[in-house]
Design a protein around this nucleic acid. Sequence first.
DNA 1: AAACCTCGAGCTCT
DNA 2: CTCGAGGTTT
Length: 725
Amino acid sequence: MSEIDNSKDYAAVQQQVEQLRREIAEHDYRYYVLDRPSIADSEYDALFAELRRLEQSHPELITADSPTQRVAGSPQSELATLHHDSPMLSLDNAFEPGDLDDFDRRIRELSGAEQIAYTGEPKLDGISLSLTYVDGQLVRAGTRGDGRAGEDVTANVRTIGSVPLRLRGSGYPARFEVRGEVVIRKADFEALNEQRWQAGERPFANPRNAAAGSLRQLDPRITAKRPLTLFVFGVGEPRATGALSHWQVLQWLSKWGFRVSEPLRSLSGVEECHRFHQQLIEQRDELEFEIDGAVFKVDDLATRDELGFTARAPRWAIAFKLPAREATTTVRQIVPSVGRTGKITPLARLEPVDIGGVTVSRASLHNADELARKDVREGDTVMVRRAGDVIPEITDVVLDKRPGEAQPWRFEERVRACPQCGAEVVRLAGEAAHRCVGGLSCPAQLEGAVQHFASRRALDIDGLGEKIIEQLVAKGLVRDVADLFYLRHEQLAGLERMGDKSADNLLNALARARRSSLDRFIYALGIMHVGEVTAQRLAAAASTLCQEIAPADSADDSRGASVLLRQYLGLPEQSHITSEALLRIMAAPVEELEQLEDIGPVVAQSIVRFFAEEHNRGVIERLCAAGVSWPEPRQPGGSAGEAGGEQAPLSGKSIVLTGSLQGMTRSEAKAAIERQGGKVTGSVSRRTDYVVAGEDAGSKLSKARELGITVLDEGEFTQLCSKDC
DNA sequence: AAACCTCGAGCTCT
DNA sequence: CTCGAGGTTT
């Protein structure tokens, strides 16, 4: 083939191949090293495809440093051993500030200098690598191993985008060794684990393990798919480069096409080192890569030579550890715990360990699947990670140390009922979590349940906020939502931030909330998957339900249906649950509920389970006994609007009062508006219907004008109110 | 007067 | 989730 090409064309092809390689290498550099791509992926792909095509028709033009040759070679049966040219030593560690000061003092004494110039780099948590370049070409790469010899991972390292196959620029030694750390982004690590979990493979415990595992693949094609990055931090024999300082070495490495560890600082004296360390601790969570320390190196290479080495580490560098995030310990026990939403989470009680200054004695196992996947057992030795501020997590089980008698902990077998309230535990289709259906009465869920119950769209109990609920629950004054209606003034007035006035207000709000509507009541119960709309549907359709048990025409004497339903539900005759509509909903079987619009099997199940729960029925009973009631809905189709519907001029309107009114107090005005079916709100927004402006109206008036909302003066307002009064 | 609580609104992300 | 307003408690 190439023989028949005439030489001019051939030279052109050769040139084009070279050109493409240069371009692709440049884009690789921009993308992987600078993190600043300058062309779209599709354009890059096109260049790559073109090069591939040319190389396919001219195989003799292929060179080892061609970008197409990153993934080359076939799977191996084992990784060969590789001896390092100069040993890869480890670093001495500093664990507390004093260690760093000692280090600095030693260096000042040995070198005789007043103040030392250091470089500060992060100690990336990955695996160390040595790369050998000959005449600017990557010839081999090996892991650190024991420092003298590691594993030959050249084929794998070639697949890493941030590793230059051919160096950029010039001025590099004919043969030299570059050192760096191969890491994986935290986000990529999560994604990789997710993928492995989907594929049924064992997830990696941490980004370092993921990087190590990826690099030690026998098949480079697998490594190529892993999002690895190389950060370099030095060279084997720095003096061979001709540099005078470490800083210079790093700059040159950067110029030659490497990505240098970031963040990087030039520091004068030990104080700045401390500050850098502190900064790293603060930035830690925001960094893309996991780090486990700060590395400080004497910058001046001549000083370094004077300092020399101890048996195992250079005297001119130190790694100042960041607070640990991982530790191993043993699992004492696994227990289910109930969260505020009713979610039941398996929790491992651990032999307490110190992880970076915090004692950890428990770790979440998230849910039954996660537990099964990790197969954590009581007695296991586990690796625990505390990332950021989140709850510690068990990342790995050390199988070698598993006691012989350890048994898998099977969620379904162990958690038959809610450990807090004894209610039924369900797992809804498609959900990872198991939940307690004891909603209204489960202590673990109480605060949340009360908050929902009192919320505006539910029973709208004004003045019952987070802090008050917290206290009521903590003092045992409220054990379920029904208790709210039995609260007395003297019980309330003693609470923090709850004086006479607030107590009165709350009691008034409770009194008002007793008269509600069926749909709000249903919604307030907080049945899983029953929101406002579903609650409305249930309320509207109530009278059609349970016709078999209690036919509508038995309503000759209107007691008839209720009696039948109560019997069916097994309620006592003197039960306070008198609403026929509610009884029909409570007694409705799954099949009937499923007939309703927007209610499928999941929601229907959830409703039936809720009302089947003894605790929940008890709470409903007591709510009704406390006088919580509503107008019975009529016929299926016919609904709401009764007396007051249209006449009330402010019905459903939202009104803001601002400034002071002459003829009435603020609260009189509020009461007047409420009598007319309106609602007084605090701030002006698009959803405000009227703003009533009194004397000295302020910012709210201007905002109302801005939004084009009707502004009423006092005269207009009283007129509006008096219309029907 | 200052501190604190609740509520409503609007924003962002899911 | 954050903010500001309004109202209450300390």
